Simulated scan of single mutants.
Amino acid sequence: MNAARLRPYRLLLVVALLVLVVDQITKLIIVEWLPVGTYFVGSSLPPVIVIPDFFYLVHITNKGAAWGMFEGYTLVLGLLGVVALYSIFHYRATLGLKRPLMQVAFGLLIGGIIGNMIDRFAYKHVVDFIDLHFGSYRYPSFNIADCGITIGVGLYILATILDAWKARKNGTVTEG
């Protein structure tokens, strides 16, 4: 693909690259700085307290997908990432990727997918390090790539709802 063909997707590429770079730099810092297993307050490897009783830095490994689901399927999950990226590329016109909101949404998503794929192929697991507590509830640990994926999907859903609302308002959608 030449530069002229990439130009309409500049925002998507910049957002994806930004998420990927921040994700990989933060994971590299955690891998070099905190030993694996740094997690529970009071353990032999306590977390780094950023905001007491709310935000901690930890170093755990995730050999599965979100919340550790599908543990042990690292290669399959990595290949699913490749399929997702190919699908986004292949269906880019259908997905409306020339629109700015869609570029941001899919840039976040692509950066996150690639960030976690790098971990899966380099480490055989994903590095998670953000640990949030809400009272007695501890949210499952995550990373910057996960943030990109989650926010990207949320923006895509929002854009889809806005498109449907605009179409209904303009009378271009029929009920039934």
Rank of each mutant, 00 (worst) to 15 (best):
N2I: 04
A3E: 07
R5D: 08
P8M: 07
L11D: 00
L13R: 06
V21S: 03
V21A: 12
D23I: 01
D23V: 07
L28G: 15
E32W: 02
L34M: 04
F40W: 10
F40G: 10
F40T: 14
S44R: 14
P46Q: 04
I51G: 06
I51M: 09
P52G: 11
D53S: 12
F54T: 11
F54R: 13
F54D: 13
Y56L: 00
H59R: 07
N62S: 11
N62R: 09
N62H: 14
G64Y: 00
W67Q: 10
W67H: 10
E71N: 14
G72A: 09
Y73C: 11
L75C: 04
L79G: 13
L80E: 05
V83G: 07
A84R: 03
Y86H: 07
Y86C: 11
Y86A: 15
H90M: 14
Y91H: 14
Y91V: 00
R92V: 09
G96L: 06
L97S: 06
P100K: 13
L101P: 08
M102I: 02
F106L: 01
L109T: 03
I110G: 06
G111T: 09
I113M: 10
R120T: 01
K124S: 15
H125N: 14
V126E: 04
V127W: 03
S136T: 15
R138M: 07
S141V: 03
F142N: 07
A145G: 05
A145T: 08
A145V: 01
D146W: 05
G148Y: 02
I149Y: 00
L155W: 02
I157C: 11
I157S: 02
A159Y: 04
I161K: 13
A164L: 14
R168A: 15
T172D: 11
T174Y: 12
T174S: 15
E175L: 15
